[in-house]
């Protein structure tokens, strides 16, 4: 692992990582505070409205059953669209830095003019991606705990189930990153690569959403990455490990990352 390349990547990635970490921390703190505070009102209200219950079910990506309990409210903080958008944005920003970001701004000539292999550059980017992803998601967890501390009436919740949710979220982050790398390795314009990743992610989100309210979409819901991230089930079951979901996301991430690496190693680099 080349220390210089890691330093360079860290130097370029820290601003996005810091801003998105703080944003996720703030959002998690707000959600962790707001959702339990109004849990009773929400439950009564939601149980009376089938449509609202369906929408909540669609948002959580799983059947919430007939009781909207604390597990459901805790999990809402981890599937809120803003939270998912922040995670997806960070994964996309970092995974499209190399090669397409460097090609687009023309700096790849200088980078690959150094005695480094393309795989070497790619590996260093992965290390920075994983490390900064840990920071972002860790800050989210910290924000969630901070918000929960401010809820006076609520007894302290167990951390272990949250840690499982966070690890599952990290697997999702890695899978999105893998997609970003593959698209990045096949593109010459970063804007186009980000647009492709964004479109696939929105499609994935919609598919997961529709599968809960539209029976025809259910058989293909396995195609959505969000199908493998269901924090409500983890929190409701008291922290059981969703091993299959994590393995699917990790294998997907690794496969896409490797495919991206092969494309990057074999492609021509044209900046002019």
């Amino acid at each position: 692992m080349n220390r210089g390349l890691i330093l360079k990547s860290l130097r370029e990635a820290w601003v996005a990582t810091l801003l998105l970490s703080l944003a996720l921390m703030a959002i998690e703190a707000i959600l962790a505070y707001v959702l339990p505070t109004f849990a009773d009102q929400f439950s009564t209200f939601l149980l009376q409205l089938e449509f609202a219950q369906r929408m909540l079910q669609a948002l959580l990506g799983t059947d919430i059953g007939d009781q909207v309990g604390p597990g459901v409210f805790s999990s809402m903080a981890w599937v809120h669209p803003v939270v998912l958008a922040i995670i997806a944005a960070h994964a996309t920003i970092l995974s499209t830095r190399v090669p397409v970001g460097e090609i687009d701004r023309g700096t790849i000539d200088v980078l690959l003019g150094l005695p480094v292999s393309r795989w070497g550059v790619y590996r260093c980017e992965l290390v920075v991606f994983l490390a900064s992803g840990l920071v972002v998601i860790g800050m989210g967890l910290a924000g969630n705990q901070l918000g929960a501390l401010l809820v006076e009436s609520k007894p302290p919740s167990a951390v272990q189930p949250l840690v499982v949710v966070v690890i599952n979220l990290f697997c999702l982050y890695f899978a999105v990153g893998g997609l970003g790398w593959l698209v990045s390795s096949l593109s010459d314009r970063r804007g186009k690569a980000v647009a492709v990743v964004f479109t696939i992610l929105v499609g994935s989100f919609l598919l997961n959403f529709l599968a809960q309210v539209w029976p025809l979409a259910e058989p293909v819901s396995f195609l959505s990455v969000l199908n493998y991230y269901q924090p409500m089930l983890i929190l409701r079951d008291g922290g059981g490990w969703p091993v299959t979901d994590m393995v699917v996301l990790t294998v997907l991430g690794v496969a896409l990352w490797l495919a991206g690496g092969l494309c990057f190693a074999r492609r021509d680099i044209c900046t002019v």
Binding site: N2, R11, D109, V110, P115, T271
Partner: peptide, 30 residues
Amino acid sequence: KEDVGYLPGDLRLYPSMTGTDMLRIFGSVR
């Protein structure tokens, strides 16, 4: 490239870095 120095025709460098930063990082890579 361990023994090659290269100046591209359409040179683009990392905008947020100073010359010293680049020498330090390139030195670290090399």
